[in-house]
Amino acid sequence: MDRIDLAADLAAVAAESPADLAALAHRLAAGLPVRHLGVPQEGLALLTMEDGVCGDRFHLGEAALAVAHVEVGGSAGGAAILGATTATAVAAAVCDAVAAGGLPGAEAVHALAARGRAARAERDRRRAQMRAATRVDFAELGESA
């Protein structure tokens, strides 16, 4: 699986069921040498936007973000997740490292990620339904709609 998709899927798992993510990471890390490559942190990401009319860059505000960067069994992994705790970010980073390195347990990571993917798909389906139900074709008076 694409690592970019994996990150988004694990971020969705982190939002829905962080305990499952932590439990899996704990199990995976048990038999492997692990270390932090960066200090895991809960902090703020400054959200830069490009304005739609002149293309100027500006800061819309900040967003709570947790990041982690680890090495598991020689494989580097990372996670950056909005609204998560550092423990959740570390767990996602361990899963990412295991999946990226094809280490034992990679299949379990993909299975958990699939749950995140399903949650994202359901979220997208609901939004699609909201758009479709409220799509409007206005007509001016005197026109046939």
Partner: peptide, 9 residues
Amino acid sequence: MITLAEPWT
């Protein structure tokens, strides 16, 4: 799971 050593805590 993974512990950080001082001075990183």
